[in-house]
Design a protein around this nucleic acid. Sequence first.
DNA 1: TAACAGGAAGTAC
DNA 2: GTACTTCCTGTT
Length: 270
Amino acid sequence: MIKRKIADLDLRQIAESGQCFRMVQKSEGVYAVSAFEKYLEIEQKGDLFFFSCTEKEFEETWEDYLDLHTDYGAIKKSVDEEDAYLQEAVREGWGIRILRQDLWEMIVTFLVSQNNNISRIRKSIELLCHTIGEEQYTGDGVKYYAFPKPEAVVRAGMEVLSTLGLGYRDKYIFRTAQAVLDGSLDLEMLRAADYETAHRELVKQYGIGKKVADCICLFGLYHIEAFPVDTHVKKILETHYPEGFPHDRYKGYAGILQQYMFYYDLKAAA
DNA sequence: TAACAGGAAGTAC
DNA sequence: GTACTTCCTGTT
């Protein structure tokens, strides 16, 4: 168990921001997350955080996962003071960060996300992990499931995938897993590529369009210049930025601002 | 109940 | 290139 004081971080906001689907609330201020075949519980008390891991694991995995090396205070400060909408969105989602999540997990997750809603996405991903993910235990004996690798997806086959309630998305996942195994989709190449190249390669894949590719670039490759436009963001842009979003002002990190806006819109709808 | 949900593929022009 | 339809299924 280690303790840290961290600014610009709120677990509830991140868990509900639609960028990750395996961070669940255990109790008031306590969240559990499974990523990179590891499991972590975090308790938040204001800007104080308690992590259920060793110093070593924190530095090797979770510090980076939570993007703690990025100065979100500076990003929020850069927001145009005249832009009342964006100011309000940032005030509402002040503790959001872009998690540095696993690429393969994000590919599958955002394939599932298409024409879908958050609660159902969460259930589908959890069922997928429970059904074909590897069963694992923490040092304290807490059981959890790792996210299934491409090998596990191919091994399961369409027979199993089709029972998971994924709808027509099951074949996208199966064929993408096959593509990773046969080398036609090279994850290492994607990790090394710049945003434009990664996006171009991703949309070649069956089931991955422009929007899903942008989500994968933003959440799976940390290309924070990627700016996914879904139906919600499209409406936001039409309503608040009829002249177009000021991409020039926020060149290189517009994706982070997209996340504040998306979360704000989600909260407004609730 | 029928429509909808953080899109993409397939088809028709 | 752009417009339109269809695709699975849990939820409301």
